[in-house]
Design a protein around this nucleic acid. Structure first.
Lengths: 150, 150
DNA sequence: GTCTAATTGAGAAATATTTTCATTAAAGTT
DNA sequence: AACTTTAATGAAAATATTTCTCAATTAGAC
């Protein structure tokens, strides 16, 4: 029960009638602890460190299940690499990706609620969730760029 | 020179010193004409219809190149399927995905510029591009859901 | 502790993507 | 318009990724 996000995910699994197994807990904990946005490679390697015997198929199956149950979110950033993050009640799932160094930071956006209701009014959809990926140069890379050009 | 987006993409290739070949033109035209957001499968099948001899490797290579040159955008919607869309100067690259029927519509958002400058102020990043995926029920599926529940 | 059905791991199978390399064709030069 | 150079292509092989199969294991209910 590493943290809140882990706890919530585990409870959701139980609630929906799935068994809380060792591998699943290890995977959820890894995702819940992860500060970056890991891809499959990293997830598999990271979990193996904690749970060496785990099979690759189990990781795929579990990620699929968590996506299915809306506990996990997949995002695409830059080219075509899929990154994962556990949904947390309090996170902002807004990503700012530096086109220079590829670093990803999360940011909150007070105004999104505004956009959201605007969208609902115009389209008549009922918005449940969203992700926003913005691309640009981080302050550091803006500086580097200046220097490069002399 | 199917349309503006196609023209712009072709010019960009030339400008960067790449050859404007038959396969590339076919791929760009397919993407430029495409109203939905096709995945690899659809792209490959669609282009074969126009250009039967084309090899799969060429499609992969060309999509990679277009992504590299920032002419093409890859988005993830729902689970883990990668969709592509040609960047157009006037498009909104905001996607509204129905969690009921999976239909994807695009919408404009007048307020995004506002969020964008807010982000720049707070984070000191310089924003160049973004994508926004919102999830919810379309009006039709909201109705179906009501009916289902009686 | 026993029982039952879901879950797992290993490896096979199926898919998807990338690489290699001989051939082709684009675009510049004459 | 032919000639040249070099990037780009298609086919097949090589890799990588994801899913499937199935016997063995284990969570959770009793």
């Amino acid at each position: 029960m590493i943290n809140n996000a882990s706890k919530a995910a585990q409870e959701e699994l139980k609630r929906k009638g799935y068994k809380l197994t060792g591998p699943r807990i290890a995977i959820i904990n890894y995702l819940a602890e992860s500060q970056e946005h890991p891809d499959m490679q990293q997830i598999f390697a990271g979990i193996r460190a904690e749970y060496p015997g785990i099979g690759m198929a189990t990781v795929y199956r579990t990620l699929g299940l968590l996506l299915e149950l809306d506990i996990l979110r997949a995002i695409t950033v830059n080219k075509n690499q899929l990154l994962y993050e556990l949904k947390k009640p309090d996170d902002h799932h807004h990503h700012l990706v530096c086109t220079g160094c590829s670093q990803i930071i999360e940011f909150g956006s007070c105004s999104f609620k505004h956009i959201s209701s605007e969208i609902e009014t115009v389209t008549r959809y009922s918005i449940e969730d969203h992700t926003l990926e913005a691309y640009g140069l981080c302050p550091q890379c803006q500086g580097d760029f200046q220097v490069e050009r002399g």
